[in-house]
């Protein structure tokens, strides 16, 4: 009897505020993104790196990851996803990140062939050289990035 007699907070106000905060976060991310694009393309200046914007983006991402892990939302999401999907969430993460790595490598390979290659054979050589080099760098990096959520979701599942 006692627990529902405690003072009720107006949860509708709280939830609506949370909704606004969520929208606010999207707005901040968009502003940072456009600021980076502006600084890098429209108004590129030496020593004018978008450090603050990158710090905001990385900092909020890391904070979300840590808090989400503490509350256990990642393992809960994984549980719900795996209940209805044939492919487990972890496998999906790995597939997406490998695809991302291949995509990035393709981009750099094509860019290298188009910008620096002179003649067909050199272009093809540059493409494969850059593509292979990028694959060697990006696949492990992306897999490492994919491994982080795997660790975070698994740790809470064990508990």
């Amino acid at each position: 009897m006692r627990w529902f007699k405690q003072k009720v907070k107006d949860e509708w106000i709280e939830q609506t505020k949370n909704k606004i905060y969520k929208e606010l976060y999207v707005l901040v991310v968009l502003l940072c993104f456009f600021s980076i694009v502006y600084k890098e393309t429209v108004n590129p200046e030496p020593f004018n790196l978008p450090v603050a914007e990158l710090l905001i983006l990385a900092g909020t991402g890391i904070y979300y990851t840590i808090r989400g892990w503490q509350f256990g939302i990642f393992s809960a999401e994984k549980e719900i996803h795996d209940r209805s999907s044939r492919i487990p969430m972890t496998a999906k993460h790995f597939i997406y990140t490998v695809a991302g790595g291949v995509g990035l490598s393709l981009f750099f390979g094509i860019r290298s062939a188009v910008v620096y290659g002179e003649g067909t054979s050199q272009s093809v050589y540059y493409f494969f050289l850059t593509f292979a080099g990028s694959l060697m760098i990006y696949i492990p990096v992306m897999l490492l990035l994919a491994f982080i959520p795997f660790i975070f979701t698994r740790a809470k599942n064990v508990e």
Binding site: W3, F4, K7, V8, K9, D10, E11, W12, I13
Partner: peptide, 21 residues
Amino acid sequence: GVSRQTIGLMESGKYNPSLQL
């Protein structure tokens, strides 16, 4: 101890209240 809007939204079915409320 809540706002009038919250009650109004509950009655109109536009807000899904918690068990506590």
